[in-house]
Amino acid sequence: MSIGRRDFLKAGAIATTATALAPGINLIELAAARSPEQAASAVNRWGLLIDVNKCAKGCTACVDACRKENGISDEGSPTTDAQWIRKVTTKDKATGYEQAFPVMCQHCEHPPCVDVCPTGASFKRKDGIVLVDKHICIGCRYCMMACPYKARSFIHEEITDQSHNAPRGKGTVESCTLCVHKIDRGDGSTACADACVDENHKAIIFGDLKDPRSEISRQLKAQPSSQIRADLNLNTGVRYRGLS
């Protein structure tokens, strides 16, 4: 196991702060830092927990952060521009009760997008992250038809000045990558989760669903949570708390 020096120091720093809270957390944080030559493995399953009640009305910090991190450009055409994450507002038809929260690719354990993709461009990494391999995506958009969460976007025009974090181009389909470049680097968080912390809302927690000691697992264990369209049995990696 070798760790980038910077990452190692960072992990150490987290460990020091975390030890005070609960012993054991430092180990988990270290585990998040995979070395560059080590393949992602099924030991982890990355996910998010989104607390709807903590999500602030009118705040779009997570959306903005995602756009910046992944270089999602605004081409000036709302119906065709890509959106990896969006704030959805729901209103109960009977009671009028309103909620607003972010929705992105739910990183399904049984992803319909992967099942239908003819070339295998849509795939699920061993650690549960669902990605599009744009090298072999032929742009048939069948995955977009199949996704129950409307999580995917097709790139309708030529794109320039892509971010180094997320290669993307005309004629292929894309969606939230769970900030895979950050996970591989061992950042232990996503851009949207970071941004939410920066805004002091802390509505998004990133972590390893398979590690019982991770923050996300402990939170999930402690309080009720739900999946969007749980009836479809896709076992999503993105969970919600307080979703009415």
């Binding site: 099942d115 239908v116 003819p118 072999i136 032929i138 048939c140 097709f154 790139i155 292929t172």
Partner: peptide
């Protein structure tokens, strides 16, 4: 109509056998 019709060869060489689309090919 594909987004990348130039990759037709990819459609012919990469198969996802769970996809009904691939079966259709």
């Amino acid at each position: 109509d594909l987004g990348r019709p130039d990759r037709l060869i990819v459609a012919m060489t990469y198969y996802n056998f769970r996809s009904i689309f691939a079966w259709n090919i």
